[in-house]
Amino acid sequence: MATVGIAGYGAYVPKYRIKADEVARVWGKKGEAVSAGLMVYEKSVPAIDEDTATISVEAARRAVRSSGINPVDIGAVYVGSESHPYAVKPTATIVAEAIRATPDMTAADYEFACKAGTAAIQTCMALVKSGMITYGLAVGADVSQAAPGDALEYAASAGGAAFILGGDHLIAEINHTVSFTTDTPDFWRREGEPYPGHGERFTGEPAYFRHVVSATKKMLEAMDTRPGDYDYVVFHQPNGKFPLRAAKKLGFTKEQVQEGLLCPVIGNTYSGSTPLGLSAVLDVAQPGDRILATSYGSGAGSDSFDLTVTEGIADYPRNHLRRMLENKVYLDYALYMKHRGALK
């Protein structure tokens, strides 16, 4: 089988944050208790003029610039999100045009709740492996919605990451990918509705944990590896607690999870969550490091990836995510509402 892997990546997190304390204050809850329960202390908020398209473009441009890949060699662009700015009209064409990859390429938008971005990665891998394209760009990004007062409001945030998949100039080889998919309605948003609905505690065991754990186990079996063989592990992060609990169930340590665990400080970026977690790990990984990443999308499914970092990482420019995590401005709830367009 031909080698396939990551030739470039770029992350984007908006500059604005709101603290869980501030959201709790508005709804008469105890911020500390909420944060302790969810392990989410603050979340990213898009600027008033940011959406999934702009976040995807920024992440994609970063990936192109950092990798040095010529954008005209990118034969496919897939953007995974559950908050595409249009119901009909692709985000992917906006991204493709903004990185100057058009017109000799294919593009489409994906939606699979929070795992649309990893589905896009798998598609690009397949196209690269089949020889249909030289490089493919896969983006996972969201400006996720939460009804005011809903438990989701403490975590639903904004951000995304883009990956250039290819067969050469790799910074990480993708050794294998597997998926675990069922029809499990734990979380949804109906057509035309502004906010999602969810099955509350049903989103846990039969949904998130069953899929994440099953997909990861499949991967360990397929690769004949044990948790201890990996330097880093990334799980989808709807809150700070779930990925840690999934890790424990599977026999991974807190230390393996820590580097890619962004939810406590930026919240749940939905389709951006696993891609951003993987970006954070790539930002610190050394050649030879082994990474396991498993996404989760409600509805429901998980995609798992086994990666080995190559020598190429050494020259790759990679401090931008850290800077975006540190460079932040806090909003109060009123400004948060203005940013979310709720005051229009």
Partner: peptide, 14 residues
């Protein structure tokens, strides 16, 4: 940077 400039109402193009 790349941003939304404006939307042509809620039904129009972004």
């Amino acid at each position: 940077c790349f941003r939304r400039i404006y939307e042509d109402g809620t039904r129009g193009a972004i």
